[in-house]
């Protein structure tokens, strides 16, 4: 069985000359995303991560290679709306993706475009708002909500189209820590409880840690990929491409280099405390 999203040798460049000179934005990307997977795509600005994301719902078409979503080629015009229904997208700026002046009417926008029956739209809208914890705000004006709430409304708007996958393009970069947590909790839960495939584009490593798999992009190519534990143990490489490393991993890495025998795959504060405790206990016993 094929993966849900298959990117096969995807190349992409813009058509104007300045960009031709600076080389392609995406260069020979091979990537499979399985059903129900939570994949984080990391990279600094200009690494091509947003461009790649826009290939997953046919907002951009590859200049070379192809992208298949559930076996459908994104270049096939006849499949366009089905692909966009299956792969919903949440964008970076919470203010610029809400269409309507009332929360519930905005959530209804997608299914309305798809021509869903009115009573069914009503059901889906209520259900989607409930899933993101915004049901009590259904009659509010979006501009009065916090950034985190706006992004959750945007997620509900996607959910109401009953997608199989949600691609989120830096959904938290304009939010405060509270809003960031709201959004991340929401997407983790949707992934866990409903098996919705999640593709999270981000430059925050704390967010990438939550994923099943991290893909690091650099200059339009895949530099590293694997379980967060593997990826974040390659501290030197991440540093080179200008990405953060989780503080616990960084601390253990530095201590290890100074000769302290710590394990290589420490990721969270809790794991770090465990590992340090063991060593400190030994040292106390030694004294």
């Amino acid at each position: 069985m094929n993966a849900f999203i298959c990117a096969e040798k995807v190349r992409f460049h813009y058509d104007n000359r300045a960009d031709m000179l600076s080389g392609p934005v995406l260069d020979d990307i091979d990537l499979n995303i399985e059903r129900g997977e939570f994949v984080a795509i990391l990279g600094h600005n200009g690494s091509g991560k947003s461009t790649l994301a826009k290939h997953f719902n046919a907002m951009l078409l590859p200049s070379g290679g192809r992208v298949l979503v559930s076996g459908r080629d994104t270049a096939d015009q006849n499949e366009l709306y089905e692909i966009r229904r299956m792969v919903g997208m949440v964008l970076q700026n919470p203010d610029n993706q809400i269409v309507s002046t009332i929360v519930e009417e905005d959530v209804a926008f997608g299914p309305e475009n798809l021509g869903v029956e009115p009573s069914e739209i009503r059901r889906r809208v209520d259900e989607a708002l409930k899933a993101v914890g915004m049901l009590e705000y259904r009659e509010h004006a979006p501009h009065k909500l916090s950034g985190g709430q706006k992004q959750r409304v945007a997620i509900a708007g996607v959910l109401a189209m009953q997608p199989e996958c949600i691609v989120l393009d830096e959904p938290t970069s304009m939010l405060d820590p509270q809003g960031r947590k709201e959004v991340l909790d929401t997407i983790s839960r949707l992934n866990r409880e409903r098996g919705i495939t999640i593709v999270l584009i981000t430059h925050f490593m704390e967010e990438a840690v939550l994923a099943d798999r991290v893909v690091v992009l650099e200059n339009g190519r895949i530099l590293l990929q694997g379980h967060p534990r593997e990826v974040f143990s390659d501290i030197e490489r991440l540093r080179q491409v200008g990405l953060d490393v989780p503080q616990p991993a960084e601390l253990c890495h530095q201590l290890r280099r100074a000769g302290v025998p710590l394990p290589e795959d420490v990721l969270t504060a809790e794991e770090c405390v465990e590992a340090l405790s063991l060593l400190l206990e030994e040292s106390y016993a030694g004294n």
Partner: peptide, 27 residues
């Protein structure tokens, strides 16, 4: 202009294609 271009992207992502075949939640 930036907002308009973002919004256009967001609307396309949500399968907007004009008034054709569109239904409404609130009848």
């Amino acid at each position: 202009f930036r907002r308009a271009s973002d919004l256009a992207t967001a609307m396309e992502c949500r399968c907007y294609r004009g008034g054709m075949g569109r239904t409404r939640m609130k009848q």
